[in-house]
């Protein structure tokens, strides 16, 4: 049990626990997001288009794919920024 606590504490120190903010896309690289989206998503499943989900749902789905596809946090934000930027005017309110 002591070892488990030590390991957890070390991981937290190494990682520097993130703050609980909404996903910050201000430093996202849309170009990299497009490249990773094109490479990674279609390896497992048919491509999901930006208009398939609303903005809020994309954020949850990208967190899910971060876990499932082994994306880094930055790649997750890059893909999300690319998807949101690609949403057309017609579905921008979603």
């Amino acid at each position: 049990m002591k070892n488990l606590i030590k390991i957890t504490a070390t991981l937290l120190l190494l990682g520097g626990l993130n703050s609980a903010s909404a996903m910050d896309l201000s430093k996202a690289d849309i170009g990299n997001g497009a490249a990773v989206w094109s490479d990674v998503c279609m390896r497992c499943h048919n491509v999901r288009l930006p208009e398939d989900l609303n903005k809020r749902a994309w954020e949850y789905s990208m967190n899910h794919m971060r876990i499932r596809a082994g994306l880094t946090g930055q790649e997750t934000r890059d893909i999300l920024a690319f998807i949101l930027a690609s949403k057309t005017k017609d579905d921008a309110h979603n």
Partner: peptide, 12 residues
């Protein structure tokens, strides 16, 4: 079911 708290926690 997906639930999250900020960008630090996700339950699925």
């Amino acid at each position: 079911f997906h639930a999250k708290y900020g960008d630090i926690f996700q339950f699925e």
